[in-house]
Simulated assay, not measured.
Amino acid sequence: MSDVHGCNLPDDLYYWIEKHTWAKPQDDGTILVGLTDVAQNMAGKIIVVNLRSRGKTLARGKSGGTLESGKWVGAIPTPVAGEVLEVNETVRSQPQLVNDDPYGAGWLLKIKPSNWDDDAKLLAVGSDGIAQYQAKLEQDGIQCAK
């Protein structure tokens, strides 16, 4: 786990840096999707999470749901295309999990990717991905609160 400007960024995730979302390949070929620590810090206290239904097919960049905080309401863009196999029902009733544990209990969707190999090429990963994310945070003047 890297700490970049006070933001936690695990080294093993694939990041869509501009949209502050992450993707994590699972052993069964599915992809977990969630918001980064950067996103939850910028949003503030998350009070409502609405997610797309199971079975819904999403194009990369399309909304996997919406979230609402005290200062922001917006779409959650998906970093991969595919079918929604599972939604994290727990975050619907406990939206603060996205703030408290964005990479664990606060994950949002499990997707069966339609073309992971192509989508993965568009995402930043590993130490290079962390360096790219750091550059973006510096460029935009973003600092996470602790």
Rank of each mutant, 00 (worst) to 15 (best):
L9H: 10
G74S: 12
N99C: 05
Q96I: 11
M42N: 06
Q94S: 13
A39K: 05
T36N: 07
T21N: 00
P102E: 01
D140M: 01
V73L: 14
S114A: 15
T66P: 01
G141Q: 01
E138P: 01
G65R: 03
T57E: 10
G64M: 01
E89W: 01
G34T: 08
W116Y: 15
Q40K: 01
L58K: 12
L51V: 00
K62C: 03
P95S: 06
G55H: 05
N50D: 14
P77D: 08
N41R: 06
M1E: 14
D101Q: 11
L32W: 15
Q143A: 09
G6R: 08
L122T: 11
L137R: 00
H5L: 13
K71T: 05
G61R: 10
G34W: 06
S127E: 15
G74T: 10
D118K: 13
P95G: 08
E138S: 08
L67I: 01
W22L: 07
N8P: 01
K71D: 07
T30W: 06
A145N: 12
G34Q: 05
G64Y: 10
P77G: 10
P25F: 00
G44C: 06
A124D: 13
D12G: 03
A105Q: 14
Y15H: 07
T78L: 01
Q132P: 03
K121D: 09
A81L: 06
G70Q: 01
S2A: 15
S127F: 00
A59K: 13
S53W: 00
K56T: 14
N8E: 15
K112A: 14
Q132G: 05
K121T: 08
A145M: 07
I142D: 07
V91D: 14
G44D: 04
D119H: 04
R54E: 10
L109Y: 00
I17L: 13
V91R: 02
L13M: 13
T21Q: 02
W22I: 06
D101S: 14
N8T: 14
V80G: 09
V73F: 09
G106R: 07
W22G: 08
A43D: 02
G141T: 05
D117K: 05
V38H: 04
A131Q: 11
V4E: 08
K112G: 00
S114P: 01
P10W: 10
E18N: 11
L9E: 04
M1K: 01
S69F: 04
A135H: 02
D118G: 04
D117Y: 00
D100S: 12
M1Y: 12
L85Q: 15
G65L: 05
S114V: 10
K56N: 00
G141W: 05
Q26S: 12
